[in-house]
């Protein structure tokens, strides 16, 4: 497997005034992702999705289990993995183009090469006219697109996306979803995409992994076999509605299970 998670767990130790508290966020997460495939992860808020993505990237280390990329253990962040954050996380003091160049600075590219690469990706997300703007001068959707361009510009083998369209209105979201599908098809990256929007997961992914509420565990792994490019027809297909209902039920039962567990320790 290209990307493998092997019973990964993560527990946060919270230091209170007098004692310490342990918060188990992820438990026994195992799955593999084939090269070039698009996996969506769905789960209720607070179940550890963002944490899982940080672990895969190497920004944090798991307390249990192991994560491997091409068979090699992940121990630190790497430019082999590009991250699109839940909140755009653009540097407010940098212009759009300079933000896209952020990851290229660590890659020891020449200035001119970095600039032309950044320009190319900015163009692909449709923002070449805004290169000299500051993030505060862009709309929320544009900011997310800059974040996407920044991650794509380092040409990572794996693209990690954390609810990148979560804060957007429905129309912009659909537009960006289509744009992402297009970019993904053209570039054949491996994508791990977090969302709590079931429709978004089904529209984009080859596979939807469903997580339970905290502590986050995998409760289902569902294949989505629809032909690509999908466009609008797939959203209207009866299979789409059926899968959506199935995942919806899983999510609800997962949440109830966790609630029951919290009541009776």
């Amino acid at each position: 497997m290209f990307l493998e998670l092997d019973s990964v767990g993560r527990t946060f130790v919270l230091e209170r005034r007098k004692h310490t508290e342990e918060l188990c966020v992820l438990e026994g997460i195992s799955f593999g992702v084939a090269e070039g495939s698009f996996v969506a992860i769905c789960g209720p808020s607070g179940c550890g999705k963002s944490t899982l993505l940080r672990l895969i990237h190497g920004l944090q280390q798991p307390d249990a289990g192991e994560i491997r990329v091409r068979g090699e253990r992940v121990t630190a962040p790497s430019l082999d993995r590009g991250m699109v954050f839940q909140h755009h996380n653009l540097m407010p003091w940098r212009t759009v183009i300079r933000n896209v160049e952020l990851g290229l600075e660590a890659q020891k590219l020449s200035k001119a090469e970095a600039r032309s690469r950044a320009e190319r990706w900015l163009d692909k997300v449709g923002l070449s006219d805004f290169a000299s703007y500051y993030p505060a001068q862009l709309s929320g959707g544009m900011q997310q697109r800059v974040g996407l361009a920044r991650a794509l510009a380092i040409d990572p083998a794996i693209l990690l996306m954390d609810e990148p369209f979560g804060a957007l209105d429905a129309q912009t979201r659909v537009l960006l979803q289509e744009e992402l599908e297009r970019i993904w098809e053209a570039n054949a990256k491996t994508v791990v995409f977090i969302t709590h929007d079931i429709e978004e997961a089904l529209f984009l992914a080859d596979r939807v992994i469903v997580m339970s509420a905290r502590p986050g565990r995998i409760i289902a792994d569902i294949a989505v076999d629809a032909a690509r490019p999908r466009r609008e027809q797939w959203r209207a297909a009866p299979e789409f509605a059926q899968l959506k209902g199935e995942i919806w039920k899983l999510l609800r039962s997962g949440q109830q299970e966790a609630l029951l567990e919290e009541v009776s320790p």
Binding site: L59, L79, M83, N89, M91, Q107
Partner: peptide, 21 residues
């Protein structure tokens, strides 16, 4: 914090992180 993490995610460490973030 988010911006520091972003810097690290894009391969910046040590002196680079200081300069860029």
């Amino acid at each position: 914090r988010d911006l520091l993490e972003t810097g690290r995610a894009f391969g910046l460490k040590g002196r680079e992180l200081w300069r860029a973030v």
